[in-house]
Design a protein around this nucleic acid. Structure first.
Length: 493
RNA sequence: GCCGGGGUGACAGAGCGGCCAUGUGGCGGACUGCAGAUCCGCAUACAGGAGUUCAAAUCUCCUCCCCGGCCCCA
């Protein structure tokens, strides 16, 4: 019953015990908005979307906060190139992000704080850190002094000595220690800047998250999420700042999602090997993208390629077919199995698996078993009306968490075979011409029905060549015909 | 160099002491005029070596490979 989750901080699975019983304060690092979001960002958002949904399903009152970094070097650089205001660029990109997320059916966070709108809190925190002796001012910038930190590297396992030994650290005469990091950066001439006790400037990267967590959740957040690429230094530094400032544990459970990779390489904006969410959605349905992401372990890297997406498409189709089958059985079920045991057991298993570190992939595997059982019941006409309802309800429940099935999709419409005489067939045929059928004409369901009937008549008279021609032609025009026990059926693809 | 994660059948990818993962693909069968959908069945597994155990893909040790992080990043 209790939820168990993998904590990156302790590197083991732990039962979820929140600061306040029944409530979860959750902060997930959002994006730096200087460009359109890519599929990697979608993965992160979808992974945490499932986690939030599951926590809520389990009765937790979740406050989900995701930030937008709308002030940073890259945004400023890009905006300068374009000759526009940095905040203009970032607000445009935020709008794009929101649109993408909406399409991907990612539930909105409760708060989307922006760095630019959190300045008073950021400055207060920086000032507090200086006052407490954890930070120092240097040339109108403020740096966090890593030497003052009690527990450096508790999340990433990095130690200061090794870091320095590993070199590749730029020398900066403004810093007392090469590993010190900026809390506040003095503005360069012409840059966007805010007033502060140290002069005009803007926040360092890490401080905004610390300030936002404190402002919107409190000194201790229950779950803090983000990509594995943020573990060091971003999350490590957040811990240093927040714990120095608040004197309390900053995050109870750290959760890190694995990177989306292209081949062996991480998909990233800087490597320029990315597909934007919009690129992908032009070719694949949002449900397929969600399925692709959720049919993997959130914490592991996920390799992206078109073949995998295609495989996801097919697999999801299979699941949706079973759902469709159950839906269309609702009003014609005549068996006596109410499937209650099947449904109860399947759903119980889904719950167990999601309770265990949100194992969405395992839950999906359960649903495939469930789909197979469902298909068998329907195939043997054993499902009762109540049974069909139960099955549909189970799929609905699953879908309320995963959002990958499409309910109102076009299901197969069966056209009863009317035994036409040879004469009738001839008459009808004279009015129909395969060569002239158009897509527009077939937009009319009645017209499609005429063709399906026509094909059925042809089959009846063993004119299979003609029947196959009809099926082929209609398929080209987006109408799929399948023969079932109840007669020929069709749907739009 | 340091920190972390891995090596499972054709492929993707779970499991992490004994029990069918699951999906895609392949093969055979049922149903079909054919196709599709669906069902049934089959095959190819746990990197290598040593050890612990009644029992190991799962625990221990060693070896060999791979990936991510250490500037920005979800």
């Amino acid at each position: 019953m209790a939820i168990v989750l993998h904590n990156s901080l302790t590197r083991r699975k732990e039962p979820l015990v929140t600061v306040q019983p029944g409530k979860v304060g959750m902060y997930v690092c959002g994006v730096t908005v200087y460009d359109r979001s890519h599929l990697g960002h979608a993965k992160s958002a979808i992974n945490f979307d499932l986690i939030v949904r599951w926590l809520r399903y389990r009765g937790y009152e979740v406050k989900h906060v995701t930030n937008f970094t709308d002030v940073d070097d890259k945004i400023i650089a890009r905006a300068n190139e374009m000759g526009i205001d940095p905040l203009m660029l970032s607000s445009d990109m935020i709008r794009e992000y929101e649109r993408d997320m909406h399409k991907l059916k990612v539930k909105k966070a409760d708060v989307y704080p922006k760095a630019s709108e959190t300045m008073p809190e950021i400055i207060a925190m920086v000032k507090g850190l200086v006052d407490k002796g954890f930070a120092y001012e240097s040339h109108e910038s403020v740096y966090f002094s890593v030497k003052k930190a009690v527990e450096y590297g508790k999340l990433s396992g990095q130690s200061l000595d090794q870091m320095v030994a590993g070199a590749r650290i730029e020398v900066d005469e403004e810093k007392h220690d090469p590993m010190d990091f900026a809390l506040w950066k003095a503005a360069k001439p012409g840059e966007i800047a805010w007033d502060s006790p140290w002069g005009k400037g803007r926040p360092g990267w890490h401080i905004e998250c610390s300030a936002m967590c404190l402002k919107h959740i409190g000194p201790t957040v229950d779950i803090h999420g983000g990509g594995t690429d943020l573990v060091f230094p971003h999350h490590e530094n957040e811990i240093l700042q927040s714990e120095a400032y608040n004197g309390k544990q900053f995050t109870k459970y750290w959760m890190h999602n694995g990177m989306l990779t292209i081949g062996e390489e991480k998909m990233s904006k800087s490597l320029k090997n990315f597909f934007t969410i919009q690129d992908i959605l032009a070719k694949y349905k949002p449900e397929v993208v969600r399925f692709f992401v959720l049919n993997a372990t959130y914490s592991a890297p996920l390799v992206f390629d078109e073949d995998s997406l295609e495989e996801s498409r097919k697999a999801l189709e299979k699941l949706n077919n079973a759902y469709d089958a159950a839906l269309s059985t609702l009003d014609k079920a005549k068996g006596d199995d109410d499937a209650s045991r099947l449904c109860d057991e399947a759903w119980k298993k889904v719950e167990e698996r999601l309770d265990d570190d949100f194992s969405s992939r395992e839950a999906i595997a359960t649903m495939f078993d469930f789909a197979r059982e469902t298909n068998r019941l329907i195939g043997d006409s054993r499902l009762s009306k109540k049974g069909a309802e139960n099955v549909v309800q189970t799929f609905d429940r699953f879908n309320s968490i995963f959002d990958v099935l499409i309910k109102e999709r076009q299901t197969f419409v069966t056209v009863p075979e009317s035994a036409g005489t040879r004469d009738e067939v001839t008459v009808v045929r004279t009015g129909l011409s395969l060569d002239n059928v158009t897509k527009e004409e077939l937009a009319d369901d009645g017209r499609v029905k005429v063709w399906v009937e026509e094909r059925s008549r042809a089959r009846k008279t063993k004119d299979f060549a003609y029947a196959d021609q009809i099926r082929k032609r209609l398929a080209e025009l987006g109408i799929e015909i399948q023969d079932t026990k109840e007669g020929a059926g069709w749907k739009r693809k």
